[in-house]
Write a protein that binds this DNA or RNA. Sequence first.
DNA 1: ACGATGATGAAC
DNA 2: TTCATCATCGTA
Length: 181
Amino acid sequence: MRKILTPQFFRRPTLTVAKDMLGKFLVRRIGKKEINLMITEVEAYDGPEDKASHASRGKTERNKIMFGDAGNWYIYFTYGMHWMLNVVVGSKGYPAAILIRETDKISGPARITKYLKIDKKFNAKPANKKTGLWIEDRPACAGRGVKIKPSMIKRNKRIGVAYAGKWADKPYRFTYVQQKS
DNA sequence: ACGATGATGAAC
DNA sequence: TTCATCATCGTA
């Protein structure tokens, strides 16, 4: 029982979507092969005022996808060598996105895109089966699926945004922490 | 602690 | 057209 997340999942308040993405599965199909990674850490980039967000200086050629429909991929190149994977969230016209920063098998946003062979060809494409890259919800009984409780979610400052003034201190990084038994 | 490495956006 | 910057990572 697997449910592919649709635009309406992403068309909600940024921080709500960020929290709800923990425990969901990022799925990449390459040929006949399917790679599944459970999302364990994300960062929210929320609105035109967020100085850590690409959208803080208005709409540009690169960030225009953030201003568009929820449920599309926003993929950009940074540090001369890395691709970052984000999904656009919130209402149309309101620039917001969630960066997928860590999964159960692969840690680090650039490592994830390298592992899944993701680059600019996915930018502005919808997250669905047709594009070969999407996000699924799964029940706790199916394989690695888990039920995320609020006590399992840690909130911290975002990484690599120290330049962003007071926005650098916002607890917009959400991490799923496994409970010790 | 630092260099790799190139697109992006803002200034000129 | 130039230039500083950058939502990172591997090696030291």
